[in-house]
Design a binder for these strands. Structure first.
Lengths: 224, 224
DNA sequence: TGTACATCAGTGAACGCGCGTTCACTGATGTAC
DNA sequence: TGTACATCAGTGAACGCGCGTTCACTGATGTAC
């Protein structure tokens, strides 16, 4: 996830470093990346418009060409975070292969992996306090990510006969909340989280397993 | 949760309002309360030492008599939050009466109620990013609150025969994480959280119920 | 192919502001005698 | 009971700093003709 400023003229594949001249080339993306680095090192609070500009190598007025203000930038970071989150989770779910239970476990692991390896995105998405009402694109990106978990839950529910089938929405909310709870209490990439006598991943998997057994879903004999 | 500055001289029971003179009387507590109000209205980030002083009616230098810096004040708020949290949860648990399953449900409801009615404390405890390593009193207060949930879990585990008894620690972590996940996603007193087609309280209770059934714990016929 | 021009994406200087922190100070309190 | 004094908890003025934001500006880009 390294980034670099686009050079104009020759340096097409944007390998290297220093700025080129008047025009940046890809300032919008550079500011988002700078914001991510600042959030990662100082938390969502310790990130300022001015510092993002500075670390993108640009004057403090430049960001205003791309974002109305600090909050707009933060909202964009969060939105992009949800988009990556969703595609990451989607890949882990793999359309329910090899079977929906295993795939759900993979989804859970991916959830925690994202929180751990992308703490800045995760913080922007869940802890920056961006008001959803002011940023419909953010809300929609979040909804799309949640929809994936709901679809996964529905796939598992369908392994049960109709009369014992729980609402997929409820199951999705439970899984999401458990994953989010474990992620934010124990598995954040940040400093200062509590230590645990076990892997957060194992904790989540065990929790999901017990939960599914409570629903009467066949977990392939992994339980008991 | 209204507070007032202590008057000297006559106004013993500190009913009323305005300051008295040179000495505040209870500035330390007043600053904590001011911090809580600021956190509640602007989030843990939007709280400054200076503003806390101002809203306690005191010069900007005064807080330094009581707190080393802003972080120290925040840590005190969080510590006090955990203490209240624990006593609130303890009251709800009621020593496992009338039975340990019902008492656990009450504990869960109390968890969410605290997050909803005391969003400022909750934010200071879980989202302010106070480093636990620098504040042992904070860590211990948090540990005591968690210990209560662990004891409650142990009580439920003991309703099972020894050979089918899950580790109480694991169960406590699952319950805590689920409650925290639901609280921070859906039940915070703050603005901007996602809406839900059901009560967070009911969502949590259903989740715990299914989880306990997965463990084979008798839930008094509430399930199925 | 060359030129004029509109548009875009930056500059850099400037501003007002509030914060954190310090300093020497002083009013209030409590206690030794 | 009174007085001197140490200590405590506040004042208020001052500072340097970085932030957000604005402004007129200018270099670069691309396009009509």
């Amino acid at each position: 996830m390294s980034w670099s400023r686009k050079r104009r003229g020759g340096a097409e594949s944007e390998g290297g470093g220093e700025r080129r001249g008047y025009h940046h080339g890809n300032l919008r993306e550079a500011l988002i990346q700078a914001a991510l680095e600042l959030i990662a090192s100082k938390g969502p609070a310790g990130f300022t418009f001015a510092e993002a500009a500075r670390s993108a190598g640009v004057s403090p007025a430049a960001p205003y060409r791309h974002f109305r203000d600090r909050d707009a930038l933060m909202a964009d970071v969060a939105t992009q975070g949800f988009e990556r989150f969703e595609s990451f989770l989607r890949h882990a779910w793999a359309d329910g292969r090899p079977d929906s239970f295993t795939a759900l476990c993979n989804l859970g692991r991916a959830y925690l992996a994202f929180a751990r390896t992308e703490p800045a995105y995760y913080a922007a998405m869940f802890e920056a306090g961006v008001p959803l009402d002011d940023h419909p694109a953010l809300r929609e990106a979040g909804d799309r990510a949640f929809a994936l978990v709901r679809d996964a839950s529905a796939a598992l529910c369908e392994t049960l006969p109709k009369d014992r089938r729980p609402p997929a929405l409820m199951m999705a909310l439970h899984v999401w909340a458990l994953a989010h709870g474990i992620a934010s209490l124990f598995a954040r990439g940040d400093a200062g989280r509590r230590r645990l006598p076990m892997d957060p991943e194992d904790l989540l998997e065990a929790g999901v397993l017990i939960y599914l057994q409570g629903l009467g879903i066949d977990t392939g004999g992994k339980g008991s």
